[in-house]
């Protein structure tokens, strides 16, 4: 009896400690976000004085409105609305583009036999070893030779190849039973028909999972847009906010904070709203 009581007390204490550490972790992760969130509701002077407000202020509307329509007027002067639009276009087109061309190539590799099939597969696969970081200068040169500097195409097309997405779809297609293909053939359906009516609907979950990962990937690109954009017309919000803090002496920190909140809202929302697919996509693609 006494030992059972002691055990239950011990268990309760362990649970309390578990909660305490987890809450500490959550706070540690949320703190930077909380600071920007609160800071974005105060005026420039308060933050400039270094008060670091931890409670909401009265200037939320004007800060967000100023950021949205004018940006950091004293430094870059690019409206955040424009930057958000650029980031959005980039993220969506990269995600959709990667999914589309990877679906097609995985389909070709799995459901056909043709010369150089494995060579093509390895060519795609090996790009895993060539991230943009290891070919900075020459890739920039190719893009500039093609006249794609400062265009959406330059931002998006070079990033649209995807070894991981191709691998994932290939894995998945291999699990589609042969009987499906046989049945389709008997019914007289050609490869394109089969792709459209059978393979595509079956791949929906995988596509959703990949979309979450790739949208975040596209939205968060930094080095590549830094290389290929010089004009503010195609500037993404992640690049834009770093430019805003370029010259510290006359930075409008309240605007920077509002921009930070706006910039992390879309990818965080996508991850949280599509949490189930996100976790699936992450653990599937990286295996």
């Amino acid at each position: 009896m006494a030992t059972a009581l002691a055990a239950s007390r011990r268990r309760r204490r362990a649970t309390a400690i578990t909660h305490a550490i987890l809450i500490l972790g959550v706070i540690l992760f949320a703190l930077p976000l909380w600071i920007v969130l609160m800071g974005s509701t105060h005026d420039a002077a308060t933050i400039g004085r270094g008060e670091v407000p931890l409670l909401p202020g009265a200037h939320a509307v004007e800060n967000y409105a100023a950021a949205w329509t004018e940006g950091a007027a004293r430094t870059t002067g690019v409206p955040v609305a424009l930057m958000m639009w650029n980031s959005f276009v980039m993220a969506v087109l990269i995600a959709v583009g990667k999914i589309a061309i990877s679906l097609l190539s995985a389909y070709a590799v799995v459901f056909f036999r043709f010369p150089f099939r494995m060579a093509a597969f390895w060519a795609i696969f090996i790009t895993l070893m060539l991230p943009v970081e290891v070919r900075i200068f020459p890739t920039f040169k190719v893009v500039s030779d093609l006249g794609m500097v400062d265009t959406y195409a330059g931002l998006i097309v070079p990033l649209v190849a995807s070894a991981t997405a191709t691998l994932l779809f290939r894995q998945f297609f291999l699990t589609i039973p042969d009987e499906f293909v046989e049945a389709a053939k008997i019914d007289g359906a050609g490869p394109l028909r089969f792709f459209w009516d059978v393979v595509l609907p079956l791949s929906r979950t995988n596509m959703a999972a990949l979309f979450v990962i790739l949208f975040v990937y596209g939205w968060n690109q930094y080095l590549w847009p830094l290389l290929v954009t010089t004009s503010t017309e195609v500037e993404t919000v992640v690049i834009g906010i770093v430019k805003m803090i370029g010259s510290e002496s006359n930075t409008d920190w309240n605007i920077v904070m509002a921009t930070a909140v706006l910039a992390l809202l879309p990818p965080v929302a996508v991850v949280l709203l599509m949490q189930r697919w996100f976790v699936k996509g992450l653990t599937d693609t990286e295996k």
Partner: peptide, 12 residues
């Protein structure tokens, strides 16, 4: 509450 920082860009 612990997974959202994944979505934050490194620069951000």
């Amino acid at each position: 509450l612990l997974i959202w920082p994944y979505a934050v860009a490194p620069a951000l």
